[in-house]
C-alpha cells in the first residue's frame, strides 16, 4: 500500500508539474489542481499507514491509525478547493478579456 501510494504521488507530481509548465493557461490551472491532490496524498501518507485500526472507536485491538494527518488534509482540501474556485473564476475573467488561452498573448502586464 505504501509503495502504491508513493508511486501514485510521484506520478501525480510529474503530471502536475508538466501541466504547470504548459503555455495554455487553463492547462496550467489544471496542473495546479493535480499538484494539490499530490500534496494532499503526501500529507495523508505521513501517518495513515502506521496503524490500520480506526482511532477513537471502542473495542479495537492492534495499532491505531494516526488521525491527525487526516484532519490536516481535510483542512487542506477545503482550502485548496476554495483556492481552485477562485483561480478558475479569475481565469474566466482573463480569458474573456483576451479571447485566448495562450499565455504569450496575455501580455497586459508586460509594459
Amino acid at each position: 500500500m505504501e509503495l502504491l501510494t508513493a508511486i501514485a504521488i510521484g506520478i501525480l507530481f510529474a503530471i502536475g508539474v508538466f501541466q504547470l509548465l504548459r503555455r495554455n493557461i487553463i492547462r496550467s490551472a489544471i496542473g495546479l489542481i493535480i499538484l494539490a491532490n499530490a500534496v494532499n496524498l503526501f500529507l495523508l501518507s505521513t501517518g495513515a499507514y502506521i496503524g490500520v485500526e480506526p482511532a477513537y472507536v471502542s473495542n479495537t485491538t492492534g495499532v491505531l491509525s494516526d488521525a491527525l494527518p487526516q484532519a490536516l488534509i481535510l483542512t487542506a482540501i477545503v482550502i485548496s478547493m476554495g483556492g481552485t474556485a477562485f483561480v478558475l473564476s479569475m481565469l474566466y475573467i482573463i480569458s474573456a478579456r483576451y479571447k485566448t488561452s495562450d499565455m504569450d498573448e496575455i501580455d497586459g502586464l508586460k509594459n
Binding site: 495546479l32 500534496v39 483556492g83 483561480v87 479569475m90 497586459g108
Partner: peptide, 25 residues
C-alpha cells in the same frame, strides 16, 4: 490589469502553500 496581477500572485502563492504543506508533512 488588477485581475491579471492578482492571478499571477495567487498562482505563485498557491504553489508556496503547497511548499508549506510539504514542509508540514
Amino acid at each position: 490589469y488588477g485581475t491579471e496581477a492578482a492571478y499571477k500572485y495567487f498562482y505563485i502563492s498557491l504553489l508556496a502553500s503547497f511548499f508549506m504543506l510539504l514542509a508540514v508533512g
